[in-house]
């Protein structure tokens, strides 16, 4: 089957089995390798992308269900929220091995869109689907608070 998917603002025609996870279409077919394979069963969140603005695990999203939705990957997030999150990540030196961080950033951006000033427990709730084996969780939490503060116009 040929599917037309909207990824990062442009339309791509992709020939694939309908059950092919969006993850592998992004990585193997479109060459967008910022989105990572970590577990393949929606346990770790390394493959998180935005589908119509909502965070989704692309390993568990068959291409046939994407339809006309707009898919955004780590390569193309560039609104003020995303910028604030990524700047906070760098300022705190959040990443260690860094492999999960695309997914962490995608989840963090989605969280701040839904909740501009999340509490610690809001962050725990929203981010518990993203595993980091290097356990950078405390810095992630701090960086999300920093980004939220920046977006509120406060100095970090």
């Amino acid at each position: 089957m040929v599917y037309a998917v909207r990824v990062n603002g442009s339309l791509h025609k992709v020939e694939a089995d309908g059950q092919t996870p969006l993850l592998w279409v992004l990585r193997d077919t479109l060459g967008l390798t910022g989105t990572k394979y970590g577990c393949g069963i929606a346990q770790c969140g390394a493959c998180t992308v935005h589908v119509d603005g909502q965070p989704m695990r692309s390993c568990s999203l068959p291409i046939e269900f994407v339809g006309s939705a707009e898919v955004t990957t780590i390569e193309a997030i560039d609104d003020p929220i995303a910028t604030a999150v990524q700047q906070a990540w760098v300022a705190r030196d959040v990443p260690q091995c860094g492999f999960c961080q695309s997914g962490q950033v995608m989840s963090a951006v989605a969280l701040l869109r839904a909740m501009p000033s999340p509490s610690d427990s809001d962050i725990d709730t929203a981010m518990s689907g993203n595993i980091c084996r290097c356990a950078t969780y405390n810095r992630i939490r701090a960086a999300i608070h920093d980004a939220a503060a920046t977006l509120r116009g406060e100095a970090v």
């Binding site: 929606a42 965070p55 989704m56």
Partner: peptide, 10 residues
């Protein structure tokens, strides 16, 4: 938020 059923379930 962020952990909707639809985050993983299609």
């Amino acid at each position: 938020a962020n952990m909707r059923c639809t985050t993983c379930h299609q």
